[in-house]
Nucleic acid binder design. Structure first.
Lengths: 205, 205
DNA sequence: CGCGAGATTGATGGTAATCAACGAACGTGG
DNA sequence: CCACGTTCGTTGATTACCATCAATCTCGCG
């Protein structure tokens, strides 16, 4: 794959627009990318990815992108010519298997997003998102947002206003918000409220 | 693939339960299958499929099903042992490519479902669903439901009560309902209301 | 004919979107 | 370093949509 190139993009760069034809497979090496879609003046975030390929399926099928993509942070991205990617299946069975495993994982992540969306209320989605995204700082469990709350609200399928209110509600379960730092002071209580499920929130498989 | 078997199931047969391990790849030859999921006493239909594989991704990754499946009509289904399916990738590049094309298509269908869900209101979802599923009977455009309205309401992400009301609303756009037969008397008006998009409702790619 | 499941209709309450205003944070340029 | 302006976030008020509950109606089937 000699024709591939590693690019560096500043935050808030539009990488892909829905409806376009795919020329490259994008592999996010470092940074953070939002996948989003628009329709009739409305706008929603489909997913936020940290380190993976994205919009692989469009490349495979050589069909228009269904989603747009933009960087949320400065990001390094490997660009592989779409034609080469498709060609290599026939050459390399290992690559073919890796590709199908990757797309299968993306598929399952998407099923989880749809279940999350259809089976939970806004504050439940928020609670579970917090439980999937916190990290340990000493004894504290903290979510340090890397992007705007606006973007998170869109990912959760709501508005900035209602995200604020949902965070307010979760105060009763020990969630303390200050700016982009959200502390989980009572994980038990938050879990009780969120009732996370391996089949929606699981990170493996 | 000698060990495969073709099975026939009556309507309303549970084929798969979420959380189980996949033993077989299911290929729906004829009939109709509902894919659904449950959580915390809630229940939602993810998709309704007519002729395709289903829950391919779980088989590939050898991970628990994220969805359950049941027949809606009498159905004929080909069962391929999961181990054999995984093994054959390394043998047959054509099969590998066919498999990845199939999963990619499923992935894109799911993106469309999620966009439909997050970017549209209930009656818009219904209107577009009608436009995707009608067939021509002479000069008439008719949707002949093959399953309960309850199931359709769950697919659309609402309740039977609100589906009834949404159908009522669409009467203003020339949609006439009588039992399981829904007639589109003014396609122009319905399209104007629904504003379908190739990137949500398109059937190819 | 009567039963039961599904579908419809009406009434109500709750959740979330929208509109509007205020406050806070940040970046820019002076 | 400060003043300013823009964007983002929060808060409050209102409205619209949708879920739920309850009652009736329809239809298929025994």
């Amino acid at each position: 794959m000699q024709v591939s190139s590693l690019q560096r993009y500043p935050p808030n760069t539009l990488l892909i627009s829905e409806g376009e034809r795919p020329d490259f497979l994008h592999v996010l090496i470092e940074g953070c990318v939002e996948l989003f879609a628009s329709h009739n003046g409305r706008h929603t975030t489909i997913d936020i990815v940290k380190a993976s390929t994205f919009i692989f399926a469009a490349v495979i099928l050589d069909q228009p992108y269904l989603k747009s993509a933009r960087t949320l942070l400065e990001s390094r991205i490997l660009l592989l010519p779409a034609k080469d990617v498709r060609a290599i299946f026939y050459e390399d069975p290992d690559f073919a298997f890796a590709a199908i495993a990757e797309i299968s994982k993306c598929y399952r992540d998407l099923v989880k997003l749809l279940k999350d969306q259809k089976l939970r209320s806004t504050s439940e989605r928020l609670a579970n998102w917090l439980l999937r995204n916190y990290s340990k700082h000493g004894d504290d469990l903290v979510v340090a947002l890397e992007f705007e709350k606006k973007t998170l609200s869109s990912l959760l399928g709501t508005t900035p206003e209602n995200l604020s209110r949902a965070l307010g509600q979760l105060a009763a379960a020990g969630v303390v918000t200050s700016g982009r730092t959200i502390r989980i002071t009572d994980k038990e209580a938050l879990v009780a409220f969120a009732s996370p499920s391996r089949l929606i929130d699981g990170t493996i498989g």
